[in-house]
Amino acid sequence: MSASNTESRTVLEALGVTKRFGETLALDGVDLSVSEGDVVAILGPSGSGKSTLVRCLHQLESIDGGAMYLDGELLGFEEHRGGIRPRSDRQIERQRRQMGMVFQQFNLFPHWSVLRNITEAPVKVHGVPMAEARARALELLDRVGLADKADAHPRQLSGGQQQRVAIARAVAPNPRVILFDEPTSALDPELVDEVLAVMKSLASTGITMVVVTHEMAFAREVADRCVFMAGGRVIEEGASAEFFTQPRTERLRSFLSRYSEGQREGEEVQA
């Protein structure tokens, strides 16, 4: 949104990415560019390939075509004798460490305490001293409002609390970019706001975020740019302000209007 963003460099980039599950083309030539410090919201109907895209960006799924770059480095593949070949597992792990991910189902490790969930990656993967990792974990827990839950086990927490821990876990190793895969979709309606509040305060710290979400209000308020996907393609993208007020494609216009109707219906049902 701000002028500085246009000058800042690209952190994460996807060029013509394709992904197949058997016969289905889940991603059909997706382009995406995320600048440093930006919050990018990815919107779209179910099955549009949003989640697949972030899972591919984090190399949890392999891609079948196109290319992805993190800070200009090719993700998952390397140059070799004038062509390209898959990177070694170690290289892929090194690349993954530069990104964080927050899952729809939280995926906290239930056999560890909340504190250990957050310190494990910094200590065992990034080689941070335990005392330092612990101090940072406690500080992050304080920031997500769960300072008193450090010794609790994940299953003793509510869904909203678990997701806030998962966000702290993703932030702890200082990743270049954090990917959110529908972080509030598995939550009871009254727990959604506490997670969105944490994400909003995180966005204000200037960290680069890619957020797959159905929360239109959040996208509109917090995201710098919005991307609309349908049928495995990017249909439209733009700065959040224009994206919602002046959609250029018919597809996005109908999605936005249907969505706001759906919202109203949902509210009526609940009332």
Binding site: R55, E120, A121
Partner: peptide, 8 residues
């Protein structure tokens, strides 16, 4: 997924 995502 979560373990891989953390770079394990």
């Amino acid at each position: 997924d979560a373990a891989k995502a953390m770079g394990f």
